[in-house]
Structure formats: structure tokens, C-alpha cells
């Protein structure tokens, strides 16, 4: 759901950066408390995720680095540091350490009831804030400079959006894991974008796709003993994306291709028909037959187009001769005027 905003901001890497940045937070929280209590660990993840995110912001603002570069930099820095800490923890003689790596790939099976409650509450909160500041989010995403001139505190809106994206990511870590989190954030939104041109529908669809992927993915992974939940969920989400990119009626590849072919065919038919009309016009009697040979000079002509024109009752064939029907003549005349007015 919040992924919609990340997609529209063309900050697709942000999710990646945040989730990777969260890793050292988890490790540090573990080192400090020595406990595996998931709330504490997530708090650590939240803090380091936020630090990473706003660090990226300030790098982009204060230097010439492009945001992708800054993202990559922070991402590898934090992830490297996090892995270092994890390795260090692993070597410690502490019975508790096992299970921390679930944050890498996610393991929904380890979720307990309180985790689920926490997720539900935060999701509800996100939803509430989203609805409350809908208008502000929308205008900021579309035209930030203009938003500023209207007197809105754009920094505040920005921080709000970013914080909620970080929050959503951190919560998802337990289920999907650091490595695949950004895919989980972006996939439903990217899929949703294919189906709609309205921001509200897009966010709604993304939420549905996301939820469905979650439920379905968890179910699949639970039914098999050795499947991690995270990858399965992301796989399900990817199926949505693939399906959407191919089959969406307005933006999908399939329909674009079909439309393209259909347009080309129509154009061929029209061209031939117009040409015939030209010839027919030279005679008083429109149904005067002409040799098919006459059309040979014309590049757009094929047997197939001719047959199609016959099928549409625009043209009659008699042996090697063709003639326009009444309907054919009129259609052609209309085409002609329509085209010339459209050209203007």
C-alpha cells in the first residue's frame, strides 16, 4: 500500500535501502538487551532504518551524488555492518542467538500472536494517517514546489510519508526478511499501477495484491515443510506483477500488441478502400468494374485485404474484376473526409 508512494516517487531502491539499513539495528538491539523479544529487536530496526533513510536524504541534498548512488552507498554500508554484527553474535556463546537470521529471509511461522496484533495496529494507524493526509500526500507527490507555494510544510509531509514507509518495512521484516522486503513493498504497487489511472484505486489495489500475496504465500509455505515464507510470498507477488504487465487492458504488453496489429490492419484496409474510391470516382457509375491488376501498383493491397473488404460488403468481386458497392463507396468517402479533417 505504502509502496504506491515509493513507486510514484521513482524511489524504488528506497525500500531496499531501508530494509538493509534496519539490519544493524536488529543486531545492536540484540547485543544490548541479549534478548530475542521481537518488539525490542524491531525497535532497533526502526531506529536504524530511520537513521539510514534520513542520512540518504541529506547526502542527496548536500552533495552532487544522485539519489541512486547515495542509496547504494548507505545500503551496502549498513548491510555490511549488520552482517558483521550478526557474524559476531553467532560466535558468541549465547544460546539465544539462533533465530536472528530469520530476519534475513523471513519466517512467518515464528510469528506469535502479539506480533500479529502489533502489525494490525500499525497497519490501522497507517491507514488512518493515509486517509487523513490524502490530499497533502497526493499534491506533494505530484508537484512538490507548487505545494510549497501554497503554504504547506512540505518537509513535514515528506517525513511523514517516509516514516510510514520505514515503519511498514520494519514490520514486514519478520515475515519477508531483509533481502526480499523491497520486492514485497514495490511489487503490489507496480502491479496495481498497470490496472488503473487513479491514485486511490492504485493504493487500494496494491493493498489487496499485497494482502493476497501474504496470505497465499504463507499458506503455501506452511503446507510444505521446507519452504521459507518470505520467498514464497514475494514469488506470489511477482506473479501478480507479471500478469499485470502482460494483461492489463490499457498498459499491458499483450493488449498493446493486439491494438497495434489491429490498427495496422485497419489502416491497410482503409488505404486500399480509399484507393479504390479514387478510381471509382472517375466513373459516373460507382459499381463499374475495374481490373484487380490496377491495384497491383498499390503497395497496401493484398488478397487478404481484398477478401476482408468483400466480407464487409464494401467490394464485389467478379473474376478478375472488382467494383465498389454502395456502402463501400460511402464508407470510403467518409473515411476520406474524416482523415482530412483530422489532419488539420
Amino acid at each position: 500500500m505504502l509502496g504506491s508512494f515509493a513507486v510514484l516517487r521513482k524511489q524504488s531502491l528506497l525500500g531496499d535501502a531501508i530494509s538493509h539499513a534496519a539490519l544493524p539495528g536488529i543486531a545492536i538491539a540484540f547485543l544490548i538487551t541479549g534478548a530475542k523479544d521481537s518488539n525490542t529487536l524491531l525497535l532497533g530496526a526502526l531506529v536504524s532504518g530511520l537513521i539510514g533513510t534520513f542520512w540518504i536524504r541529506s547526502i542527496v541534498k548536500k552533495t552532487h551524488l544522485k539519489s541512486d548512488t547515495a542509496l547504494g552507498l548507505i545500503l551496502s554500508l549498513f548491510f555490511g555492518f549488520g552482517m558483521l554484527l550478526l557474524t559476531f553474535i553467532q560466535k558468541q556463546p549465547n544460546a539465544n542467538q539462533a533465530g536472528l537470521d530469520k530476519y534475513l529471509f523471513g519466517q512467518a511461522a515464528t510469528l506469535v500472536e502479539s506480533d500479529v496484533w502489533l502489525m494490525a495496529i500499525v497497519t490501522g494507524l497507517c491507514l488512518f494517517v493515509l486517509l487523513l493526509f490524502w490530499k497533502e500526500f497526493k499534491i506533494l507527490l505530484f508537484d512538490a514546489d507548487y505545494t510549497k507555494t501554497l503554504g504547506f510544510n512540505t518537509k513535514f509531509i515528506d517525513i511523514l510519508i517516509t516514516s510510514f514507509i520505514v515503519l511498514a518495512i520494519v514490520l514486514g521484516l519478520q515475515t519477508v526478511g531483509v533481502v526480499l522486503m523491497s520486492a514485497m513493498l514495490l511489487a503490489p504497487a507496480a502491479a496495481a499501477r498497470q490496472w488503473t489511472n487513479s491514485l486511490s484505486t492504485m493504493v487500494f489495489l496494491a493493498a489487496i495484491f499485497g494482502a493476497f500475496s501474504g496470505v497465499f504465500g504463507t499458506a503455501i509455505s506452511a503446507s510444505q515443510t521446507n519452504l521459507s515464507t518470505g520467498p514464497v510470498i514475494v514469488l506470489v507477488a511477482s506473479v501478480f506483477v507479471f500478469f499485470s504487465f502482460v494483461f492489463s487492458p490499457s498498459r499491458g504488453l499483450l493488449f498493446k500488441q493486439i491494438r497495434f496489429i489491429k490498427n495496422r490492419r485497419d489502416l491497410e484496409l482503409h488505404k486500399t478502400l480509399t484507393f479504390m474510391h479514387h478510381i471509382a470516382e472517375t466513373h459516373d457509375d460507382i459499381s463499374h468494374p475495374h481490373a484487380i491488376k490496377l491495384l497491383n501498383n498499390f503497395q497496401g493491397f493484398t488478397r487478404k485485404t481484398l477478401q476482408k473488404l468483400v466480407k464487409k460488403d464494401y467490394v464485389e468481386l467478379q473474376g478478375n474484376m472488382w467494383s465498389l458497392t454502395e456502402i463501400g463507396f460511402e464508407t470510403a468517402a467518409n473515411l476520406y473526409t474524416k482523415q482530412s479533417t483530422e489532419d488539420e
Binding site: L8, K135, E136, K138, I139, L141, F142, D143, Y146, T147, T149, L150, G151, F152, R193, T196, N197, S198, L199, M202
Partner: peptide, 16 residues
């Protein structure tokens, strides 16, 4: 390419 309509964009003028 932002998903919104002409009317929606003009409405933004009233947000201030």
C-alpha cells in the same frame, strides 16, 4: 504520467 485527472490537478489550486 502521475495517475490523476485534469480536474483533479486543477482542484489542487484550492488546497492552499
Amino acid at each position: 504520467d502521475f495517475p490523476t485527472t485534469a480536474l483533479d490537478v486543477v482542484m489542487m489550486g484550492t488546497y492552499g
